[in-house]
Design a protein around this nucleic acid. Structure first.
Length: 348
DNA sequence: GGGCAGTT
DNA sequence: AACTGCCCC
């Protein structure tokens, strides 16, 4: 659950395709990506893919084939995992845990009643990434020869830092938080652009590219003000204010400049004055503005896959079909076809 | 989400 | 070649 500013920053959106990212290193928010696979790769009644022992394997299937797709398009993925969370995040995490429990009940109920569509909805909302899933994802990436790092704290913060240090070209996540962390470039929907079926209707899914400078120029605000907007609507470290969405938050910041002014003027939203402890406000801003550097500079390389280990993990342990794994490995090892460079100078 | 085969 | 539907584990 990232910061809800999608409508606000839409005017700064640039649509791109995979060939536009040819040769680029991309820091992928691992947690966000793996969670997405776990939530979406399911049978029509909401049941995820499982191995013979009943362990969920949806995340591995998604991660394997997505990563493969990127490599085939000459994109260099680097997965960034979350490190220990900030103490302010724990509270929000607890709330999400409770919400998941509720959703699980609703899913089981819907399955009993035979309402598969309803079951699917709640199955997705009750998805939980376990530490085992994280560990085996790392292991598989290792065998694939794809690098990953663990962030000092927030994965998106580290991905933003890597982008701004020039160690990768952009970061990729479905959430917009990396922009608050100052990332100059954010890529969303990092997948083959194609039509997808959502609730009976087909929609075109395009890769989205956001350039922070363009976002700030369009909105005519500073990054500090973008962070204030985030705090008002809610971020991973603070729930925001009830009834205060992105439109109102933008209007308030545009008119008043900062949260302090809003507080001082005693501005009310839905008959409730906006109040936040100034020390907390300062702490929240610092989380986004002073991203901690890791103790040692991350060193990442893309290697040849370990075919034997990959086969052992996926075929023997996770019961993937031999044919699928063999073809995946073949694609992984094969010298990538030379793709024509698509000039994007006018955007970048 | 992505592979793949069957269809137009 | 584009599109649809089913399956993957």
């Amino acid at each position: 659950m990232g910061v809800k500013i999608s409508t606000l920053i839409k005017p700064a959106l640039t649509e791109i395709t995979l060939p536009n990212l040819l040769g680029k290193k991309i820091a992928i928010d691992a947690f966000n990506s793996i969670y997405q696979f776990l939530a979406t790769i399911r049978q029509p009644d909401g049941t995820p893919l499982r191995d013979h022992q009943g362990n969920v394997t949806s995340h591995l299937s998604g991660l394997l084939f997505r990563t493969l797709r990127l490599i085939e398009n000459d994109i260099k993925p680097l997965y960034v995992f979350d490190g220990p969370p900030h103490e302010l995040k724990s509270q929000i995490v607890q709330e999400r845990r409770e919400k998941r429990e509720e959703e699980k009940h609703k899913m089981l109920q819907a399955q009993d009643e035979g309402d598969f569509e309803e079951a699917m909805k709640h199955a997705q909302a009750s998805s939980k990434l376990t530490s085992e899933m994280i560990e085996e994802s790392k292991q598989m990436l290792n065998y694939m020869g794809v690098p990953y790092i663990e962030a000092p704290h927030d994965g998106e913060a580290e991905a933003a830092r890597l982008t701004n240090e020039g160690l990768v070209w952009a970061c990729s996540s479905q959430d917009y938080d990396s922009l608050l962390f100052g990332s100059s470039r954010l890529v969303r929907n990092l997948t083959m652009s194609r039509t997808r079926r959502v609730k009976g209707t087909t929609i075109e899914v395009q890769i989205e590219y956001y350039f922070l400078e363009k976002v700030l120029n369009e909105l005519k605000i500073t990054r500090e003000q973008l962070i204030d907007i985030g705090i008002l609507v809610g971020v991973d470290f603070f729930p925001g204010f009830k009834g205060l969405g992105e439109k109102t938050a933008y209007k308030l910041i545009k008119e008043n400049g900062s949260i302090e002014t809003i507080i001082n003027k005693g501005i009310e939203v839905r008959n409730t004055p906006i109040e936040i402890d100034l020390e907390l406000l300062n702490t929240l801003r610092k989380i986004f503005l002073n991203v901690k550097k890791p103790d040692k500079i991350p060193n990442f390389v893309w290697k040849k896959p370990d075919e034997e280990k990959l086969r052992e993990l996926l075929i023997e342990q996770k019961n993937f079909s031999e044919e699928r794994v063999s073809s995946a490995i073949k694609r992984l090892v094969q010298k990538k076809s030379q793709k024509s460079q698509v000039n994007l100078d006018r955007f970048f």
